[in-house]
Design a protein around this nucleic acid. Sequence first.
RNA 1: GGGGACAUAGCCAAGCGGUAAGGCAGGAGACUGCAAAUCUCCCAUCCCCCGGUUCGAAUCCGGGUGUCCCCUCCA
Length: 478
Amino acid sequence: MTLTIYNTQTRQKEPFKPTVPGEVKMYCCGVTVYDDCHLGHARSYIVWDTVRRYLLWRGYNVRYVQNFTDIDDKILNRAKEQGRTMSEVSQEYIDAYFRDIRQLNVKDADEYPRVTEHIEEICDLIQRLIDKGIAYPANGDVYYSVQAFPSYGKLSGRTEEQMQSGASGRVAAEDTKKRHPFDFALWKRAKPGEPSWDSPWGKGRPGWHIECSAMIRRVLGDTIDIHGGGGDLVFPHHENEIAQSEGATGKPLAKYWTHNGMVRVNGEKMSKSLGNFTTIRELLDRINPMVVRLFVLQAQYRKPLDFTDDAIASAENGWNTLKEGLLFGRQFGERLGWNPDDDAPHLEDVAEKFQTAMDDDFNTSGGLAVVFELAKELRRVGNILVHGGEVDVSADALQRQWITLVELAGVLGLEAQPEEASESPNGLSDEAILALIEQRQAARKAKNFAEADRIRDDLKERGIALIDKPGETTFVRD
RNA sequence: GGGGACAUAGCCAAGCGGUAAGGCAGGAGACUGCAAAUCUCCCAUCCCCCGGUUCGAAUCCGGGUGUCCCCUCCA
């Protein structure tokens, strides 16, 4: 069976063959650290995290690198506003990034290169481009000469003429140091009072796209296997990365270019400039991180994803089902005569079904269908066990189902934590609740249903739901 | 104006030439004193529209219509 990946550059799915068999070099564009991350970022990093987890599960050795862009006009502006240094601001949001993204069960990258730590590599790369006649200095700035790179536009599928006609008027007004309107800055001359670094062209700082080219080359080499990022980065960011890297090395930068779709709100892209974003921090105040993950993974990663209350509610309910399945082993394993921590072989046919789905360009929606079927079956059996009925499946089969579920859900980064023991935010201890249950049982026995219902409603209002079973009544906290 | 995608039930969503996965919501029944939870069953004769190719198309081709993304910072 072959894994296929949709390659933005060829606009089709291609069989995945890394340069070195079994080894995958993967790079994703990280965030520019000037503000909190929002749901759009969350989607992106959940998607690439899942791709990475899947490749690992498939047996690949994956080296995953994600950068922090910590030199940028926006960081600078924020620093000025707040009377702080650029590095103070960037460090704050790097910390915020980790705080948010780790909660979503996104694994840490193998490396997080930062622009400020790679100025030398950036200068080297720029010099190389100048030496090759692909870049030119102009009064303290350095520009990339788009016309010197004939295949410019190959990723986004545009030709120079098209861009000319499209951008008419918008480009002409730009500064005149450029030889061609589409040339872009590799190095920007320092303005007074701004942080700057020494370079052969004078004091200044790197332009926006060059850092990724330089850091990829430094950390992963000339050619990587998978380059990922948001769809909005295709042009100009990734197009320019290709121009810079391939212009300098003559080798392909990435074998597979992959891009995730945008998150939408009311039909519009969620973005900083539109101001319609929900930060991860706000989101996680009211939503379980796993719900966010499920919400993201239910959609195909390349398609737009609508952020609506309905979709979140749906994911919330779906997660409850999944969670019950994932906790099955912890809850019933011992009763069934097996230890939840013991290893057991997964169910081969189920794992294969999962793989078939995921092999098709990371079809997480199909993968989830497999996971849901396992979870629902375990929930069914769990319910029988709770009610003391006859289980029609062998303990061994259940163990293997559960092991398989935990493994496959884990590939998607979906993990359930066992409930925290009787924390009582509503002030009621387990003992107090049990006492009330006793009272209600007595009332029921006496056919005083008004009183029984009053107790039940009362608890309900305090976020405690009662579950009547033959012989006993248990409760769950919301 | 140019470039790129997408359009499947109330909602989300898979499907890639062989007769519509899965999730949510909904309906009926079981259980219950009544509920909740859970279980069982049901829930698109049809895949935006119009043509064409084919024994056969949601799936391929052509033409429409609609939505989104990019061309400016953006995951």
